[in-house]
Nucleic acid binder design. Sequence first.
DNA 1: ATGGGATATCGTTCTTTGCCGGCG
DNA 2: CCGCCGGCTTTGAACGATATCCCA
Length: 875
Amino acid sequence: MRTRRSQRGRDADAAETPPPGARSGGGDAASGGTRRRRASSSAVKGKSPAKVEMESALGDKGKNVKVHTEGDDDAGMTRCSSEKNSLDKEDPEAIRGCDAADMDWEEGHILAEEHKESYELGETFTVEFTDVPSSTEKKTVRRLTAEEKELAELVHRVHLLCLLARGRVIDKACNDPLIQASILSVLPQHVLWNSVETPILKANELRSLVSWFHRTFCVTPHSDDRGSFESNLAFALQNHVGTAEEVCALSVALFRALNLTARFVTNMDVAGLKPDTKSMETSNQDAPRLCTKALPSSSFVAGHNEHNNLSPVVSQSQDNTEDSIDTTPKKHKVQGCKKSLSKKLSKCKADHGISCASQSKDSSSSSQYPSTSNAEVPKRKGDWEFELQLEMALLASAAEVQDNELATHLNLSTDSILNSTPPFKKLNKSAEAPCNSSTVWSRSGAPLFWAEVFCGGQASSGKWVHVDVVNDIIDGEQKIEAASAVCRKPLRYVVAFAGNGAKDVTRRYCLQWHRIVQGRVNPEWWKNVLAPLERLELAATNDTEDMELQTRALTEPLPTSQQAYKDHHLYALEKWLHKNQVLHPKGPVLGFCKGHPVYPRSCVQTLQSRHGWLREGLQVRENELPAKIVTRPKRTFNSQSLQSNSNEDELKPTLELYGKWQLEPLQLPHAVNGIVPKNDRGQVDVWSEKCLPPGTVHLRLPRLFQVAKRLGIDYAPAMVGFDYRSGRCHPVFDGIVVCSEFKNIILEAYAEEEEQRQAEERKQQEAQALIRWYQLLCSVVTRQRLKDSYKAPSSDHGPSGPSKDSSQQKSTNDTRSSETKTRASRLQEDRLLDSPFLAHEHEHEFPEEDQSFDEETFVRTKRCPCGFSIQVEEL
DNA sequence: ATGGGATATCGTTCTTTGCCGGCG
DNA sequence: CCGCCGGCTTTGAACGATATCCCA
């Protein structure tokens, strides 16, 4: 048999709603009409077998016939043709004959002879496409739409503003005198540096202070909100337990209480600028990571060195006896911790509605240690981190030591635990790996909050020093970027808060700016947001770090990856230049990347065609050779322009591009004797105000050309651009171009004419209003007259007004033989009288004795006892 | 694990100067 | 008769950006 295929582009249904199996034929993007199909097929890449059932015209007893088609046919087309077959089943011959010329026919094969017979007999058969989707094509490719991107950016911006506001709240709390005084009161004297010996503070002099802070305050993943951040801080201060944010804020308050210039700094954990496609699609896969996020991450860090417990109860019991060692058997504590962890895990999973096999495995592994050593299943990075954090949590809750000196004790105790739980051996090994700062952070969670203290005394020679009391790190600014990347909280916006203001100090912590710049919002917007806050911050800190940040911005090391040079803000590789870019001058070479010379980005010049520069009011100097010649996009000439346009330059397949250094200001012919220089179409192309011939002005007012025409002033329509409608491009005109000397005359005349026109318009409107009032009043009178004429008889039955019963109405009307009306007009009146518009409190009554009839004019006058009278013209 | 090249696909940019019939 | 206005199968091809895959 053969299946019918509609002509491409004719079958709108096929183009708009392809079946799941449809895919673009041949992948030729140039073929007309492929775009829409491509867009829809991209939703589900790959094919599912399409099955089409058809019923032949002649048969009535169904017998299925399978018809297999081969090759890469457009299933959507085939489907539509089969639909049509079923529609036109009354006369298959007619279908065959009617539009066969418009169809492409596609050969198919029938499997067996008997099937063919049954087809001829006209029975139901099935067309089944056997091109089963290959495993590689099954994967769904879901790309983000512009709308989703826009929404994500909006969320990103709002989140940024919220985080900025949050930072200011914290900064304000750090200035609270009560909090400052309180924290000062618990500070032991011995941790302070000798300010007499060293009047200028150096970073390492903060060491003992930071260590004391780190030992004294425990970090919890979350704390109860007590109404205000100040209250939260007070609570944290009282109990020596708080979130990383609160502990960090307390450190800032302490530094400020000690009269140091300090800022609260946060790496804003902001929602992504681009939607997270992975999280949108594969929530199941990411579920373990979600759980990881929900787990208390910050607490692990404190536990690394400190007596930090997951359970707040235990934590508090220790707070009271800070120097005592808990004598509870380790085993109990560890088991308690296991239970609480597994509880948290199951809660976390329940919260996220996750129920997949892998997770239940994770769950069991966390509660049943012997089963964890399932190393056959390859672990993902997230799982690995999760287990690592789990282990650290256990270590933290098992820890009984007070300070670093007892670390060996800690190792012993954890060893004993881990020895009893073989699955954790592997994890323990990794925990014993060389411990640099980034690995510490990777266990503890990303560094999100820290302080900056201004060290070195004078503003000119001083320096902001990174101080992280949560992790007991001083001057670790260079490690933050790597630590954040490991913890999947990449640096994007590091903002320092002081004096109720804020400042973006990302540059200080970011070594590879080009990596983070794609994740940041439009710099212009961000700059505008921060501008007022930066002024406040500057007033509070009086620092001069801008030079330092700028220097950092300009001295970024050369990236080692070639792709990093794509749109790098400082450096460029020739291979990554855009089509309309060129290196001018070609040098100096700053270095090499995989053998390719690296040039400064400032050497990259963007080129434009002659016409492109013309729009900017510039023209190419004489005798300048094009800086670059590129292939011109194939133009879609219509037949007419092909015929009329004999200019060979216009048809050249290449485009000559010129750089800024080859240009001069546009030189256009001057207006002479009040005549506007026009182009050969009798108009002036106004791409911008710079393109106006000298001595002319562009007046953008409607109907202005009529004024110019009336005054006999030379003018030219101003063509400001093109509009593409209905497949053609149309010039767009806006206003006129006239010589400057006529500007005022024209404008005055225009104003005068406009005034007249408006007066005329007003006059017309008033006249129109009069007419409409007259019509309205007439209709009111008519309505009332009709109402009266029909209400009078019904008033006999009571004051209920006109009856809605049409038969009754008719009978009453019949009694009034003197009034002859058509049935149609009566029905109309019924509607009018029923209208709520006519509802009044007083219903007029017109007794027969109060009516008079004028024989000459056939006008009956009816009078209501209330004094209202109405005249009815009787036909 | 990472970088680079190839490929696919989607969104954006560039292109760049009618015709005809109805109606006031 | 003249001028205005609105409706015409809806431009569509190239390019840039980005995601993904595969391989070294």
